[in-house]
């Protein structure tokens, strides 16, 4: 098993990577710090598991080199669990990538990172409900201070592939594209 860290640029994937592996990957407050992938090892369930810090991507339809690398990493590691890191203050944008990864059949854990920023902006997220609809573990985290990491790691084993139809059903159905509005 491998674990892939995926998410938009500048949501804190490198900070996650450093926290989980104890490695020294640069963390910078601008998008695009990681343009190549980085591998490391983390202890999980008594064994060493490979963790890959994937370059930031907005979607799985690549627009730049970093995104091409991201899609390639995903395709080359079919047996991985994906930790999808979302910016909690911009959940909708992050969910797009998360759904794409779920649709491709990967087991996913969603980390709602920058929970503190979302709170500052007065955005409240019903984590339990989101978990029920998506059918995957959802954990609020603050990467730079380390909050939520223990829970995140403990939930990795709960991650399992979910059918997108199931999510649509849980969300109460979805209109077809033609009648969107």
């Amino acid at each position: 098993m491998k674990i892939l860290l995926m998410g938009h640029p500048n949501v804190g994937k490198s900070v996650f990577f450093n926290r989980l592996t104890g490695a020294k990957v640069f963390e910078s407050n601008y998008p695009g710090t990681t343009v190549d992938f980085t591998k490391g090892w983390m202890r999980f369930g008594g064994e060493d598991v490979e963790l890959i810090d994937v370059p930031g991507a907005f979607s799985l339809e690549p627009k730049d080199r970093a995104e091409e690398v991201a899609v390639k990493m995903l395709e080359e590691n079919r047996d991985s669990v994906v930790i999808c890191v979302l910016d909690a203050s911009k959940v909708e944008r992050g969910l797009y990538l998360a759904l794409e990864i779920i649709e491709r059949g990967y087991p996913v854990v969603v980390a709602l990172n920058m929970w503190d920023v979302a709170e500052d902006k007065n955005i409240r997220i019903d984590v339990e409900k989101l978990e029920r609809i998506l059918g995957v573990p959802v954990v609020p985290t603050i990467a730079i201070s380390g909050e939520g990491f223990k829970e995140l790691v403990s939930k990795i084993k709960e991650a399992a592939p979910v059918k997108i139809e199931k999510i649509i059903e849980n969300a109460g159905g979805v209109e077809s594209a033609a009648v969107s509005g």
Binding site: V91, E92, L95, Y96, L99, E100, E103, K121, N122, I123, R124, I125, D126, K129, L130, I133, L134, I164, E165, I167, I168, A171, G172, G173, V174, E175, S176, A177, S180
Partner: peptide
Amino acid sequence: MPLSVDERWNLIEKISKQTVEFGARK
């Protein structure tokens, strides 16, 4: 069956309406 881009955004809107609440911005 993979969703189209529009369908995916529709689904996200459905989900976020039920789970995300935007308070007044300070």
